[in-house]
């Protein structure tokens, strides 16, 4: 079997198809940033230790720096650029904007994508490390600040905007619940 170190792949990103040749070494993160000019996904550590590159893969949050682009073929990728509908921001984006859930802005796209993943995971009843009673009968825990903090801990913010970020996720969760936008499982 002949081996090859590159492939032509088709990526599904934000509802669009992109066909491009990639070096197998290319991560999804570098494909987005260097090849597709989707630079909203940030490179903070490039080794899964900061969360700045968080995107949604088939609707679930993942770090793009440890995801090889070639292995992402066939999966639906949603990046920060794919969240707003025209000029209308996603409720999580809107909450970050209004409550100042950022400072330098570099970890922000990752925080926002992660928060969207958190809200979905919580709506599905998934427990976290700080959930007191994880038995399925107990149902989903209340989305307290403590729950949000634990679930968001894979996203470092060196500026230290954590207080405002948690406030923003809290508000978005409340807004999402009233608008019943995907939050109700």
């Amino acid at each position: 079997m002949a081996s090859s170190t590159s492939s032509v792949i088709t990526l599904h990103i934000n509802g669009e198809k992109f066909t491009l040749p990639v070096d197998h070494r290319t991560t999804l993160l570098d494909a987005l940033r260097e090849r597709l000019t989707l630079t909203g996904t940030k490179k903070g550590c490039d080794q899964g230790q900061c969360g700045a590159c968080t995107v949604l893969l088939d609707g679930r949050r993942a770090v793009a720096c440890l995801q090889l682009a070639v292995a992402a073929e066939g999966r639906e990728v949603t990046t920060i650029e794919g969240l707003a509908e025209g000029d209308r921001l996603h409720p999580v984006q809107q909450a970050f904007l209004e409550l100042d859930g950022y400072q330098c802005g570099y970890c922000t796209p990752g925080q926002i994508c992660s928060a969207i993943g958190v809200l979905r995971e919580h709506a599905e009843g998934r427990p976290s490390a700080v959930t007191d009673d994880i038995r399925p009968e107990a149902g989903p825990p209340p989305l307290t600040a403590e729950e949000i903090r634990e679930r968001m801990s894979g996203n470092l913010c060196r500026c230290g905007a954590y207080v405002a970020i948690v406030e923003a996720v809290t508000r978005a969760a409340a807004d999402g619940a009233t608008e019943s936008e995907e939050a109700v499982a």
């Binding site: 000019t37 989707l38 630079t39 996904t41 650029e81 921001l89 570099y106 796209p109």
Partner: peptide, 21 residues
């Protein structure tokens, strides 16, 4: 006041040094 570059930052449109083509 919310940040004047806020929308750019929450939509990923804000370009940092390593991102200018």
């Amino acid at each position: 006041r919310t940040r004047v570059e806020g929308v750019e930052k929450v939509t990923g449109a804000a370009r940092y040094a390593g991102e200018i083509p």
